[in-house]
Design a protein around this nucleic acid. Structure first.
Lengths: 200, 200
DNA sequence: GCAGATAATTTTGTTTCGAAACTAGTTGGA
DNA sequence: TCCAACTAGTTTCGAAACAAAATTATCTGC
């Protein structure tokens, strides 16, 4: 009984925030795209990754991106390693627009909670997201420190490397310090296993 | 910093649940309408109330309702007291459909939380909703026990009345026991005041 | 009775969406 | 090398959702 009530509240908050998104210069879907490309790491700044994050189709994702590009909020850059992929990046106009994100009202509302409530909520939401992701065959997005593939080599043997070098064990590439906290498509939560053998 | 992260998780859950709504017999907006009319009290089963709940326009609300009526999920009944208003009610087909609500995955996900986490989350969501409602000029929906206008007369003087009779002090009408836990448009949270003089 | 407010609907044009078809680049065998 | 299967991204299409404005019917206060 309490579960249903809580779930309804959650849905209600989501709906309210989406309605806020209609004010202003961008549409709700476009705001989501702008937020995503601001928060995604270099591997993940692609239309496909955004489509998965958004739980929508690639076609729909392309349209939101096209609109943002036309408005000068995003610029595209082809990948060197794969001619099919493109990387989207926020322009300075895109970054400035984020400051006017209607979603900020939700951030402020979160700020009105005290710290213990907020962390309790964050942990609970994490678990809910995990449950939803497994039941709905969605991919979770997360950051390096929570990821199985994250390798941190302490105090490299060579003096030329810094005090600690981050690396993605899945892709075998180094990770820049500023990217460690960004969202990644290849995220694999620790202490959990995939049952469907989708591991690439 | 933690506030932004938590807010993003909240948004993500909302988006995921909305995407679930595309599977099945009804559209997301229609599911919302069906849920609302199942949970709203007799005063509040109107198109206008649903529009406010949904943070959308009355025109949009009418269209979702029209589709549900055409599908046999809802029936309309004009108010006796006001010829303009109509009351929507779920048919047995509508009630049966609710059991297949894709939103149930969220309820199950909530069930996976333990009781203390869930109540913490419910309280936090309540507060967030209040903050959002005041900042965005939206009306809050709530239930009688939390409402200023709720009057409960203990042990009525007349033996014909039950052990306790509920009443809405705003409208001056009695409230059936089964309606006390349903959502109401006229809800006014206790210990809070409206500053905008919108009290009717 | 009349002016103004309110409940609901209709209409119009825009945006969003999923689905499916399509292009182009990549990968892995034979 | 060649070709089939696959993948990233795009385009197109029709359906739905949406806001905004116009419309109708009803109610309320004066």
């Amino acid at each position: 009984m309490s579960a249903r009530e809580t779930a309804e509240l959650l849905l209600q908050v989501g709906r309210l925030v989406q309605a806020e998104g209609y004010d202003g210069e961008l549409s709700p879907a476009q705001w989501m795209a702008l937020r995503f490309f601001a928060r995604a790491n270099p591997f993940s700044r692609t239309p496909s990754a955004f489509a998965e994050f958004q739980a929508t189709t690639r076609g729909t994702a392309t349209q939101a991106i096209k609109a943002l590009e036309a408005g000068g909020y995003l610029v595209r850059q082809p990948f060197k390693t794969d001619g099919r992929s493109v990387s989207l990046r926020l322009t300075s106009k895109g970054k400035k627009a984020l400051a006017r994100d209607p979603f900020e009202v939700l951030v402020r509302a979160m700020d009105s909670l005290d710290a213990t409530e907020r962390t309790a909520m964050r942990r609970a939401l994490h678990q809910v997201l995990s449950t939803l992701a497994t039941s709905g065959a969605h991919r979770r997005f997360g950051v390096c420190p929570d990821c199985t593939h994250f390798g941190r080599e302490m105090c490299g043997n060579l003096p030329s490397t810094g005090p600690s070098a981050a690396e993605c064990l899945l892709l075998g590439v180094p990770i820049q310090p500023e990217d460690v906290g960004l969202l990644c498509v290849h995220f694999q939560p620790m202490n959990e296993h995939r049952e469907d053998g989708r591991t690439p």
